[in-house]
């Protein structure tokens, strides 16, 4: 199971990669996709929607359950992964890369400090 060190993590099992200072790319972790099982549908928000930190922005639906997706930081949705509509399995196959879900223009990049490091998240995940 992977826990890339260059990412920030939320307790709700999302990861954040920062690009260009204030763009946050968000997806769900390897641990989360493994727990959910085969993902068959990802419901993403509309571009332009403003999200608060901790707000539910969509759902990941697997063959056995559905799980809400929570935004780790506040910001405006600037892009939604167009591949997921036709190939939701990318979230299983490549959770940290091709399976990214949304990009946000962050309101306040300082919020990243509230998130977990790879080590902290690994501890959380492995504790169950």
């Amino acid at each position: 199971m992977e826990f890339p060190k260059d990412l920030k993590y939320s307790k709700e099992h999302e990861w954040v990669r920062v690009e260009d200072g204030d763009t946050a790319i968000i997806g769900i972790t390897d641990f989360a996709q493994d727990e959910l099982g085969d993902i068959v549908f990802v419901e993403a928000p509309k571009v332009g929607r403003d999200l608060k930190a901790g707000e539910s922005f969509g759902v990941a639906e697997s063959v056995k359950t559905v799980s809400d997706l929570y935004s780790p930081v506040a910001g405006q949705v600037i892009e939604v992964n167009p591949e997921l509509e036709g190939s939701p399995e990318l979230v299983n196959e490549s959770p940290f890369d091709k399976g990214w879900i949304i990009k946000l223009k962050m309101e306040d990049p300082k919020e990243l400090e509230n998130l977990l490091s790879a080590q902290d998240y690994r501890n959380l995940a492995q504790k169950g």
Binding site: F41, V59, E61, T65, V66, D68
Partner: peptide, 11 residues
């Protein structure tokens, strides 16, 4: 069925 109450509960 994931739209439905027995799986999705209040959502």
């Amino acid at each position: 069925s994931t739209r439905e109450q027995h799986i999705r509960r209040e959502k």
